[in-house]
């Protein structure tokens, strides 16, 4: 049990969350579902940042990073929601499969 310290476990869980997020981004059709996948992966990333601070002992800096990342995450969600709603008004649904006008 020496091998799997809680730090290692956290790393593994984080990777699993990123995997889940990427899976969700790739395999779902609903745009909001896609951004939920992104958010899940971003959760893992923030966790990694805090973990990194914990491991190298520089928790202040990692907190500062995390605060910035969270602010950016919120703004991304806002912009994404704006674009999604714009598309919803054009198409009447939020299906990503509609978006094949640009190709080739």
């Amino acid at each position: 049990m020496e091998l799997f310290t809680w730090e290692t476990n956290m790393l593994i869980v984080g990777f699993l969350m990123i995997l889940a997020g990427c899976y969700c981004m790739i395999r779902t059709y609903h745009m909001l579902k896609i951004i939920i996948g992104v958010e899940v992966a971003m959760k893992a990333v923030t966790m990694f940042l805090i973990l990194a601070g914990r491991i190298n002992g520089n928790m202040d800096l990692s907190q500062a990073f995390v605060v910035t990342v969270i602010v950016i995450e919120v703004i991304v969600a806002v912009v994404f929601a704006g674009v999604t709603i714009g598309l919803y008004k054009k198409y009447g649904n939020m299906d990503i499969r509609n978006l094949t006008q640009l190709k080739g």
Partner: peptide, 15 residues
């Protein structure tokens, strides 16, 4: 044989 451990000294009060 991968393992991670926290640093012993933590500075958390100068945020």
């Amino acid at each position: 044989d991968f393992t991670l451990t926290s640093a012993l000294q933590q500075t958390t009060d100068h945020f």
